[in-house]
Amino acid sequence: MTDRKPLRVLILGATSAIAEATARLYAAEGASIALAARDGTRLAAIAADLTARGAGSVPILARDLAAMDGLEAAFDAIVAELGGIDHVLLFYGVLGEQKDAERDLAAARAILDVDFTSAALWSLAAAKRLEAQGSGALVVVGSVAGDRGRQSNYIYGAAKAGLATLVQGIAHRFALTGRKGLHAVVVKPGFVDTPMTDGLKKGGPLWASPDQVAAVIRKAAAGSGPIVYAPWFWRFILLIIRLVPAPIFHKTKL
């Protein structure tokens, strides 16, 4: 990374553990990193840390990212503050309470608005900009939960599946431009030890650290196919899960 100009990166959902681990990789390269999330105080703490770790400028966008009014103007403003854009990374999402969302449609809608609708709009805003300039990467964090509808978390899973399909489509659209430095990718992490999963029992070979997933994400941003699993072995786990016939699958409590 020595000769190239430092990258300009926008991180949506910058207070998540995986986002912060990824931002540190960019900081060590000397990138300028715009941080967007709801909590301005937390963003300020992260910005100071990234600066100490070598980042260039670290502008902050304290905003509820699920709020869709004025979304594109907010995107343009933070990109202008950053002085241009090379990588857009989208990390935010809520797991939600599946059982509550089944009874309460407002709760279901909140999950869908955060995890799909708003995320799709941020992705489209980024795609528009990146396509216009003919270069850059859009990296969206999806989930293996989107690979097969399962009774335990299918609302979250459906939102992530929709988002993955959207990004896959953007990747196709980018590919047709013939521009080599323009791509979109969805990264699907499996179990990651973050505050989001603090309610689950953790430990064992399937659990990854935010640092491990961040390394996969950073690599995907540098160029890759449209769908990446993190770590890689989830591709095969999900392949098997997708192939299990419904009569058998429906006997499980997955």
Partner: peptide, 18 residues
């Protein structure tokens, strides 16, 4: 261990707060 941010690092004065 989840609170692992550097608050301020000044290479000139050799001072780091985290």
């Amino acid at each position: 261990t989840g609170l692992d941010r550097i608050h301020h690092f000044d290479p000139a004065s050799h001072v780091l707060r985290a």
